[in-house]
């Protein structure tokens, strides 16, 4: 498995929580949004999205509800829960710490300049 897939796999929960916290979304919409916002970086086997969504739903971090589109077709929208917001806040903070630590090692000059 490529390095990119490994990275996506280990961060998929944070990515999904972050997207859904912006607005409730359904599966296909999430795939498109991830691809568009990352300019194509986050493209993966679409079937792998649903196990991740169901895992988050089972953990109580998101909640799925069937709702009608303006066209009348039903789609399962995912909403972030209170528990999901709390988990996202933790994940954001650990991601920031990780990124800072990585930058201190990988790009020390830029970090020094920014201080």
């Amino acid at each position: 498995m490529s390095e990119r897939h490994e990275l996506i796999k280990s961060n998929i929960d944070s990515l999904l929580l972050c997207l859904i916290s912006g607005q409730p979304m359904y599966g296909y919409q999430i795939i498109k949004e991830l691809k568009d916002r990352s300019r194509g970086y986050f493209s993966f086997k679409e079937g792998t999205l649903y196990p991740a969504l169901h895992r988050l739903e089972k953990s109580g971090l998101i909640e799925g509800k069937w709702q009608a589109l303006p066209s009348g077709q039903q789609r399962k929208y995912y909403y972030i829960t209170e528990k999901g917001y709390a988990s996202l806040a933790l994940q954001r903070s650990s991601w920031r710490e990780f990124l800072n630590a990585m930058n201190l090692i990988i790009r020390p000059e830029e970090v020094r300049d920014s201080i």
Partner: peptide, 9 residues
């Protein structure tokens, strides 16, 4: 429900 969701996708 899973099958319905995949079918809509």
């Amino acid at each position: 429900e899973v099958i319905r969701e995949l079918a809509t996708h």
